[in-house]
Amino acid sequence: MKKFKFIIAMVLVLTFSMPVASSANNEERLDPNEIRELQSQILDLVVNEKEETVNDLPLYQKYQDFFKSNPDLEEDYINNLDAKKWEESKIIDRIKVNESKLVTLFEDGSFSVLENALTSEDGTLIEALPTMSARGVIQDTGEQTYTGKIGETFKNDARHDIWGPYKIGELHLVTNYSINSGSARITSTTITGTRAIFPAAVSGSSSIPINNARIVESLGEYNFAGTCPGGWGTCTGRYHDISTKINIKYADNGVITFTVRSIVSN
């Protein structure tokens, strides 16, 4: 009997000495109002072409630290961003930054940026003529108009950025080509610069569906995925395409007018 009483006493001691699990949920620390404010601040910097200063935002630093300590919450939040699953999300605004850059803003405050950067053979950035408008199609730069000489070569970098509380990915389609009076010729394509920030992951490839014609086309195909909880493999994969079309419009006294248009689709 004494032995039995001793066992009961030990059980009671162990029971009352065990730590009580906290009922507080870590998710309460993920303040949705703060996240939206952070994304709004980032949007303002990107629209004003001050992306390089995003890291200086106090809220950016706060949530970088928070996500390091709460990777499961980060995975869940990033995987469900409207900008990441844009084909099924509500758009609340489209912002034309310049003749080559469009921003699409979604309901949860995340946003995407589609930009065409055209450079000459020596690497000089070429500005498009003022013909582009914010189009009804969500991820479409519209036709951007340029001029060049017969035989001149160019490089176009079509870039699609996806933003939440930080930039979670960049998709690039780089197209190298030359122009002539009646046709264009794509010499090479690549997805150089394409990257994703953990917990996102991306893979892809590029090709040339149409070449040596008045209208030529390059294509980038990407699988943009998120990391499953716990880091086991990848999940929520979403396939995106970027197509770039170069269209030779006309030639006049050796000067060729042509357009470049890039579209993101799924």
Rank of each mutant, 00 (worst) to 15 (best):
K249S: 14
R185I: 14
E28C: 08
D82K: 02
K249P: 09
E170W: 06
N55K: 13
N116C: 05
I208H: 04
H240V: 15
G220T: 06
N79Q: 06
D65K: 15
E152D: 14
L125E: 11
G169M: 08
D157M: 13
T244K: 13
L73W: 05
A128W: 04
S178W: 02
L219P: 09
S183F: 13
I35A: 07
F16D: 03
C228D: 10
D82M: 00
K90P: 00
Y222Q: 04
E27C: 08
I191F: 05
K167P: 08
Q61N: 05
P19R: 12
V47S: 09
K101Y: 07
L118T: 08
S89H: 01
D122N: 15
S183Y: 14
N98W: 03
S181A: 11
M10W: 14
A225G: 06
T145Y: 10
K62R: 04
P130V: 05
R94D: 01
E51F: 05
V103S: 02
I35D: 01
S243F: 10
Q41I: 00
N156Y: 01
F106C: 00
S89V: 03
L12R: 08
A158C: 02
L173N: 10
C228M: 14
S133C: 07
I242R: 08
M10S: 13
D56H: 02
C235P: 06
H160G: 06
R29E: 11
N70A: 02
S178M: 12
L38E: 02
R29Y: 11
R36I: 13
R135N: 10
T244L: 09
K167M: 09
L114S: 00
D56E: 08
R261C: 06
F67V: 03
S112C: 14
G164H: 03
T124L: 07
T236I: 12
S120E: 08
G182H: 08
L105G: 04
V202Q: 03
C235S: 09
K167C: 13
F67W: 05
S218Y: 03
I168F: 10
L38W: 00
I215E: 07
P58M: 01
P199T: 06
Q39S: 08
N253R: 09
D140V: 01
K68N: 15
A225S: 09
L125I: 13
E49S: 10
V260Y: 07
S203H: 07
S120F: 02
F6A: 15
S40C: 00
K149F: 10
G231C: 06
S112P: 12
D82T: 04
L45C: 02
T119R: 15
E49N: 14
Y63L: 07
V137W: 01
K5E: 13
K85W: 04
A213E: 11
